[in-house]
Structure formats: C-alpha cells, structure tokens
C-alpha cells in the first residue's frame, strides 16, 4: 500500500470560484505581441491561425495565472520530483 500526502501538513489551496478565471476575457497581449511569441517559438502560422489562436489564448493565460496566483510557500515542491533510483531507467 502506498502512503498518501494526507496529514503531511500541506495546506489545501484556498478555494476560488471557478468563474474567477473567466474574468480574463481578452488576451493579455495584443495580436502583434502574440505573433512575436509564435515566431520566437519557431512556429509558422497562417494569418488565420494567428488570429484564431490569439482569440483563445486568453483562456490558457487565465489558467496559467490561476496556477501561479496563490502565494505558495517556497517549500511546496513540484509534484514531479527527481528520483535517483529511477533516473537512469
């Protein structure tokens, strides 16, 4: 049986209502900046793709904001950790 994290002192994240992230209804950057990000990523997008992706980018930006905006304690490590026993497998 595996042990769980329960009781290890990790605080539950504060509860936010799900609609909070929907308040970000426009991309946090304009189309020109978005195109620059795409170019930096090495993507070759058509103008239509640039517009479409920019139109939905704000949803992803809102999710990124949601995972960041918590004032998380420095000791909360990522859930994926380096395991030296398995590192070479």
């Amino acid at each position: 049986m595996r042990t769980t994290n329960a009781g290890k002192g990790l605080a539950s994240p504060p509860r936010l209502e799900c609609n909070e992230e929907r308040q970000l209804t426009e991309a946090p950057i304009n189309l020109g900046a978005f195109k620059a990000l795409a170019r930096r990523a090495g993507l070759t997008l058509t103008p239509a793709e640039e517009r479409d992706l920019h139109g939905t980018y704000h949803y992803v930006a809102a999710m990124a904001e949601r995972v960041r905006g918590r004032g998380r304690a420095p000791g909360v490590e990522p859930a994926v950790v380096f395991d030296p026993d398995k590192a070479a497998q």
């Binding site: 990790l10 994240p13 960041r68 998380r72 909360v76 990522p78 859930a79 994926v80």
Partner: peptide
C-alpha cells in the same frame, strides 16, 4: 513548474 507545485497542493486536498 507552478502547475506541478499546485498539483501537490491539490493532491493533498
């Protein structure tokens, strides 16, 4: 990295 840190909190909850 922040998503993976949040994951640990969610797992604890």
């Amino acid at each position: 990295v922040e998503a993976q840190r949040m994951r640990r909190e969610l797992c604890a909850a």
